[in-house]
């Protein structure tokens, strides 16, 4: 996002400053700074990850990826990401709909509440979950009651459901934040027009609202998924069992912290997995952005 902004800024500068020596110099300087910054902050570290992961040969790389702990972490990460994505897409749509299409007391407050995960450190969120749903937490009897009633054995902290909850919390704002400006700009006149012609809520959403928001929705979902895959802090607070509830970022941390040369290489190998996922997401994001823009 940032990157793109600076690029469009540069291109507009390009047109204005073309010809004048000063403009040219400024342009070169800005490009130079940006490129240098990106190289140091992004490209070198990422290349390092790939390089390190492959340093001990492909066999080592493959072993690291198929280790039981890695596979377990991959599974937990994917479960958490998929559930968080589904839940947040649904609630994000609901929240954006509520905030943009209805006028009610406390709308501003709700809009602010949605942003809380952006402003609170994820670790605090994780700790808050422990305090609420953990052994000492006030909601613990509630969960016990549910477990007694259905004969289940659900636990919300130090377990996969806890990881999922923490991931949901951290990634909650992405979908609604992408949707709200688009839906606000659209207003509700088209929906009202559809209603005046006899259409019901679901038809209105499917035929009038959805075509308008689909690219923003997809974009929000991509951001949400990216963040869900990479989340560390909140998950770290509620997940303590390696091989059971660890996600990929936690597994990488554990491998790296083990300190042996092998485990560090393994850490980089697992990291490369996340990097590859990130690159796939980045490409998807570019495609969605491009198609969304073209359709406007």
């Amino acid at each position: 996002m940032k990157n793109q902004e600076s690029m469009t800024m540069e291109s507009s500068k390009n047109q204005k400053g073309a010809g004048s020596g000063e403009g040219k110099l400024a342009r070169c300087l800005l490009i130079g700074i940006s490129v240098l910054f990106l190289l140091i902050m992004l490209v070198f570290p990422l290349v390092e990850v790939i390089y390190r992961s492959l340093k001990e040969g492909l066999k080592m790389y493959g072993d690291a990826l198929t280790a039981p702990n890695t596979l377990s972490a991959l599974g937990v990460t994917l479960i958490a990401a998929v559930i968080a994505l589904a839940v947040n897409t649904f609630f994000g749509l609901c929240a954006a709909w509520l905030i943009t299409k209805f006028d009610f007391r406390g709308r501003q407050l709700l809009s602010t509440l949605i942003d809380i995960p952006f402003s609170i450190s994820p670790v605090i969120a994780g700790l808050a979950f422990i305090m609420t749903f953990g052994r000492m937490g006030w909601a613990k009897p509630l969960i016990d009651g549910v477990n007694d009633l259905f004969g289940t054995d659900i636990s919300l902290v130090f377990s996969v459901p806890g990881v999922v909850l923490a991931t949901i919390f951290v990634t909650f704002p992405f979908v609604s934040r992408e949707l709200i400006p688009v839906m606000q700009a659209q207003g509700s006149a088209e929906e009202e027009a559809a209603a005046m012609m006899g259409a019901k809520g679901l038809t209105i959403f499917r035929r009038v609202t959805f075509p308008h928001i689909k690219w923003a929705l997809l974009y929000g979902m991509i951001l949400c998924a990216a963040r869900a895959l990479g989340e560390f802090g909140a998950v770290y607070a509620v997940s303590k069992a390696r091989g059971k509830t660890f996600t990929l970022p936690l597994e990488i941390d554990a491998l790296y912290m083990a300190g042996s040369a092998d485990s560090i290489t393994q850490a980089f190998a697992v990291s490369s997995l996340l990097v590859i996922m990130a690159i796939i997401i980045l490409i998807l994001k570019q495609i969605v952005e491009y198609r969304g823009k073209r359709e406007q």
Partner: peptide
Amino acid sequence: ARDRGIGFVFQNYALFRYMTVYENVAF
């Protein structure tokens, strides 16, 4: 509103921008 059987022309027309003229009228 949807059951009142009233036609409404909105101030900025609120045409469905992702539908053709034909589809707008047919909606």
